[in-house]
């Protein structure tokens, strides 16, 4: 079988130069790639006592702010170019949104909670998706040197993702738990909601409470493990092949493939947890 691929002369010259340069850099770089000693360490700063924040992870905050700007800009752009007959970009965004909306509509039993659940789940999905894609870009990262000054780590780190930080995941998982219970109380009333814990039998009360606490733990650690573990895996494999060819493929796999699936799973679970609580 012959694949009919044809390159023009300009493309051939470009590809030749590109691959030659790539191979040259790879060979030159081969001995210089160090073992990533800064692995599993993050940059932290301590905020003075009057503030309640305590210790902070600056990279998480910076990346979150960046993602906020990107997402809000995208949303603003969507609203500005909104038309009844959609453009290509608009229909792509509409596809994602209507997919999420249908999902929420199927799972949520109460009509008046469809919209709030849709808002929460879709915001989670978009934020986690973009964050996951950013995470684990191989070969570049920001860390701190032993003497405390900031430095750019080349070939010894992967790029930081907000979802690769446990703070984000645990916060969002606990938030989903609280939201599900608040919605349940709003829908059913306090008495009915409390009755849910002793059903089908009062003996089941500790089980139910443990079950509720297990939800955010599994919910958050699943995402954290996937993204942080994916980042470390990309880093180690990239080190083993000395940053030739493979890292981009790894980033494509862990960033886009696993990242999309995990974002989807996280938002689906959020919808499901809220939907279960709203069940009469």
């Amino acid at each position: 079988m012959k694949i009919p691929v044809k390159f023009s002369k300009g493309e051939k010259i470009f590809l030749g130069i590109f691959f030659a340069a790539y191979a040259g850099v790879a060979v030159w770089n081969f001995g210089k790639v160090e073992f990533p000693s800064g692995i599993a360490h993050v940059w932290q700063i301590k905020v003075p006592l009057p503030s309640i924040l305590g210790t902070l992870n600056p990279m998480t905050i910076i990346m979150t702010a960046l993602l906020l700007v990107i997402l809000i800009y995208l949303a603003f752009d969507f609203k500005r170019h909104l038309k009844k007959i959609p453009s290509r970009k608009q229909s792509a965004i509409e596809l994602v949104l209507s997919f999420m909306y249908d999902l929420v509509k199927d799972v949520t039993p109460a009509e008046e909670f469809v919209r709030p659940v849709f808002y929460i789940a879709t915001t989670l999905f978009l934020f986690i998706l973009f964050s996951n894609i950013l995470g684990g870009i191989p070969g570049i990262g920001i860390g701190v040197s032993p003497n405390g000054s900031l430095k750019l780590n080349l070939f010894t780190d992967t790029w930081h993702s907000p979802t690769g930080d446990l703070n984000t995941n645990v916060t969002y998982a606990i938030m989903v738990l609280f939201i599900s219970h608040i919605f349940a109380i709003k829908l059913k009333g306090l008495k009915e909601w409390a009755k849910g814990f002793i059903s089908p039998n009062p003996i089941m009360l500790p089980m139910n409470i443990i079950g509720e606490f297990a939800k955010p733990i599994s919910h958050s650690l699943r995402l954290f493990g996937n993204i942080a573990g994916g980042g470390i895996m990309v880093l180690m494999l990239s080190y083993l092949v000395k940053y030739t060819f493979v890292p981009v493929i790894l980033w494509g796999f862990f960033g886009f493939f696993v990242g999309t699936i995990q974002a989807f799973v996280f938002s689906i679970l959020a919808i499901a947890y809220i939907g279960i609580q709203l069940e009469q």
Binding site: Q44, S51, L53, T55, L166, T168
Partner: peptide
């Protein structure tokens, strides 16, 4: 880790 970042998140 789990610290004050969560509030900002």
């Amino acid at each position: 880790n789990f610290n004050g970042t969560s509030i900002l998140q």
